[in-house]
Simulated assay, not measured.
Amino acid sequence: MSELTAHHVGVTVADLDRSVAFYRDTLGLPELARFSVGGDAFSTGVGIENAQASFVHLDAGDLRVELVSYNSTGEPQEYSRIDRPGATHLALTVDDVTAYYDSLSSDVETVSEPQTTESGTTIFFIRDPEGNLIEVLSD
């Protein structure tokens, strides 16, 4: 049996260019690849009839972040709360959470200022332009 290893974390967005700009320019993740996928195999694989999507892969060190925008008639959902079943977030580490927080542009939506939790981890959350949660942390 094959051993599973991590490949990427996918984030579905409505405006791919705006999201790429945020992840590249605000978070500093370099772009690795840009491509589109469609066809019967893709539609069957994702379980959406006539699915077509554009993808951008970004380098987050040991993790690849995949931004994907589907040509879909689905409506965007409201901001998710992290305590809801099915909620997801991307977590990225930095050496100094407070310095990173202080370096963010004022137009970046933050959930809170940095907080040190009972476990000793310092965290804060931001939202990307689509409302997806990103945790910034240090141990």
Rank of each mutant, 00 (worst) to 15 (best):
R18G: 03
A41N: 02
A14P: 00
A53H: 03
Y79V: 10
L16Q: 05
G47A: 10
S72G: 13
F22E: 02
D59P: 02
V13H: 01
D59Y: 06
A14G: 13
Y23W: 12
Q52R: 13
L32T: 07
A14H: 07
A21T: 10
L58I: 05
E75Y: 01
E75T: 14
E31K: 13
L67R: 04
G45I: 12
A41Q: 09
V46N: 10
E49D: 14
G39S: 07
S36W: 01
V20G: 02
S80R: 13
A53E: 03
T44P: 00
V65N: 04
A41M: 08
Y70F: 15
G39I: 07
V20I: 14
G61W: 10
E49P: 02
F22W: 09
L58Q: 03
E31W: 03
E49V: 13
G61T: 11
V65H: 04
G47P: 10
Q52M: 04
T44D: 14
D40K: 14
A33C: 00
R81Y: 13
G38P: 00
D17V: 09
V20K: 04
P76M: 11
S54Y: 00
S72K: 05
E49W: 00
I82G: 14
A60I: 07
S69N: 06
D59K: 08
T44I: 12
G61N: 11
L63H: 09
N71D: 15
S43L: 12
P76W: 06
E78W: 00
D25E: 12
D15N: 13
S72Q: 11
T44W: 00
A60Q: 06
S19A: 12
G28I: 08
S43P: 07
L16D: 03
R64S: 09
P30I: 03
S54R: 13
E75R: 11
T26R: 10
Q52I: 08
T73A: 15
D40Q: 15
G39C: 06
E31N: 00
S72A: 15
N71W: 00
L67N: 02
N50R: 13
L16W: 07
G74V: 08
D17G: 01
F35N: 06
Y23G: 05
D17A: 15
E49C: 00
D15M: 02
A14R: 13
